[in-house]
Design a protein around this nucleic acid. Structure first.
Length: 319
DNA sequence: CGTATTTGACCGGCGC
DNA sequence: GCGCCGGTCAAATACG
């Protein structure tokens, strides 16, 4: 993990300039997005905490070759490669990509968010008497950025908002949500980037212990271990056409892994209503030229914020 | 009426 | 010790 942090520091991350202002989806859903598998030192981190590897102990990443993911993220990164900065220096993002150390991810498991409820209880208890000095361990975190007009993306789970706070150095407040499922203690924070107001940063904390209440149509079906998504067959086959289901973090990783091995790049899996495009995960996100993307792809990609590591492979265009 | 949201207050951690 | 800040609680309110 420390190792990763070092990596991070050396690479000064940021978003890529691939974000376009056009083609924003009215109903942003999870895969407008792109996850940012970044790790941060949550002690020092700014408001944007990406994948907080240091806290990953809850995720039960089922793939033993998770390192593949790392490789995917890292393999093409050369030390000389200067960081790509987006529209702005965005120092907030400088915590950079930290693609997790595979071992740190895959070796986890353990108390899934099931203890989320307990967490709450213990918290309440601690309010009464003097609390112990037991430092509460953080849930695994997973954050991603979305280019969206709406803050709260529908990810297929039901969330109850329990708080909102003003964010320092940002005109936009941060909203706090908790999964409404009683046994599920998953939380998420949603805030809009002050650097780029079209970007919404969503941070998940914990792991769902229940299936998603709605299922997507098509999207996750592309995954061999389809059942994996939705953790157990997930919910009702109902599937709302207007909703896209958000996978859990490890599900996303699965998708990444899978897709990165499929080399399927230009076949949309979703209807036009849905915004996810496989190009998001395309095998060669580091394509040397933007022109590599077809016009169509670009249209689909423009809402996505690619993982910083990936973006860093993009040629830097001085403008 | 049940559920979700809003919002001010409160708490704990951390830096100075 | 104090103040700042992030996160949470919970009463009040809104909504369907």
């Amino acid at each position: 993990m420390l190792l990763m942090e070092e990596t991070i520091k050396s690479d000064n991350l940021s978003f890529s300039g691939q974000i376009s202002e056009t083609g924003r989806m009215p109903n942003s859903s999870f895969f407008d997005v792109i996850s940012s598998y970044n790790c941060v030192d949550h002690q020092k981190t700014s408001s944007f905490g990406f994948l907080d590897i240091s806290d990953i102990h809850d995720f039960d990443f089922p793939f033993s070759d998770i390192s593949t993911f790392d490789d995917l993220m890292l393999q093409n990164i050369s030390p000389e490669q200067p960081p790509v900065s987006l529209t702005s220096p965005a120092p907030e993002y400088s915590e950079v990509a930290n693609t997790s150390n595979s071992s740190s991810i895959s070796s986890s498991s353990t108390e899934p968010a099931g203890n989320g409820g307990n967490q709450e209880k213990t918290k309440k208890q601690s309010l009464k008497p003097k609390k112990k000095k037991v430092k509460k361990e953080r849930e695994a975190r997973f954050a991603f950025m979305t280019k969206s007009d709406i803050d709260h993306l529908d990810d297929g789970y039901r969330w109850r908002k329990y708080g909102q706070k003003a964010v320092k150095n940002s005109p936009f407040p941060r909203s706090y949500y908790r999964c409404t499922s009683t046994s599920c203690g998953v939380k998420k924070r949603v805030e809009r980037s002050s650097e780029d107001t079209s970007i919404v940063v969503t941070t998940y904390e914990g792991t769902h212990t229940h299936p998603c209440h709605i299922m997507p149509r098509g999207f996750f079906g592309i995954i061999p271990e389809t059942a994996a998504f939705g953790s157990g067959g997930g919910g009702g086959g109902g599937g709302s056409p207007s909703h896209l289901v958000m996978p859990t973090p490890h599900q996303m990783l699965q998708y990444h892994l899978h897709h990165n091995t499929q080399q399927q790049q230009e076949q949309p899996y979703l209807s036009s209503n849905n915004t996810f495009s496989p190009t998001l995960m395309q095998k060669r996100p580091f394509c040397p030229s933007v022109s590599t993307y077809s016009a169509r792809d670009h249209g689909l990609l423009q809402d996505m914020l690619l993982p910083s590591k990936i973006l860093m492979k993009e040629p830097i265009k001085e403008e």
